[in-house]
Design a binder for these strands. Sequence first.
DNA 1: CGATATCCTGACGTTTACGTAAAGTTGCAG
DNA 2: CTGCAACTTTACGTAAACGTCAGGATATCG
Lengths: 150, 150
Amino acid sequence: MSTIDADTERSLRIGEVAELVGTTTRTIRYYEEIGLLPGSGEREQGKHRCYTQADVERMREIVRLRDLLGLSLEQLSQLLEAESARAELRREWKLAESGVQRRRILDEALEHVGTQLELVRGRRAQLEQLEGELEAKRQSLHERLAELTA
Amino acid sequence: MSTIDADTERSLRIGEVAELVGTTTRTIRYYEEIGLLPGSGEREQGKHRCYTQADVERMREIVRLRDLLGLSLEQLSQLLEAESARAELRREWKLAESGVQRRRILDEALEHVGTQLELVRGRRAQLEQLEGELEAKRQSLHERLAELTA
DNA sequence: CGATATCCTGACGTTTACGTAAAGTTGCAG
DNA sequence: CTGCAACTTTACGTAAACGTCAGGATATCG
């Protein structure tokens, strides 16, 4: 199935990525500029950036977190700090022969995910709290309406 | 218990409100300026703004929504559009003799709360989705760690 | 190889959401 | 009444997160 491989691994240009993710090329370059995105591999000055399907996924994830959590891009950078290291670790993975090294990589990934989870859970809890209060408010209004009818 | 009344109804100055809400006077004035807050009642040019305890609560609510939902202040204005009208309706309430009028007021309040609820629920759903995915990711990492150990 | 679409790197512009400073005013304490 | 803290308006400043434009390079298709 070389077509699938070709389709999966075909390198994308920045415009295509922007389209796929639903953002702009400027935003992608900006994120790279501030270090939120790693520099799309090695690349000589002036040459086109080229991305993989995995990069698209990562960008999607970033946009999602940006929209869902209320963090500044700098805070987001820190939250995803591992994210830039992750690409590195992925490559290390293949080389890492020893179980010890692999364990370390997995441990770091776990901590990373754990941090994100905490943040997301916190947000969700706050939203649930607010949701509850709004429901109570609505309930109260319904009751007052009922009284009025009686 | 006149002290409670006095305490509840004592008019607050902008600095106190800012302190209580945990924001700045500039922010309060700015929100008034862009119409997010109603103009703290009638007030002659140059005279101090004065607020009630209810105003503090409303400000708290606004700050909360600002921090939790990812809306621009303009979008927030629209979401709380009724909020400015609400103060008006509160005063109308006492005057509204007819059940019909009161019903209308309650209906509007209900719709308002309903809109907010929808938004909050949507956000929460998205966060829950994300939370689920992160948990799956974590689970997967745990399994891989286990494999490594075995 | 040439045309044309897309990309590159600056660099300056824009909007949002306030911060901050100046110059004068208000309001309560004594 | 007087003094001082907190307030008023006005206005310019700023950081974040991009938008936009110019001038030139690159890549792909025929």
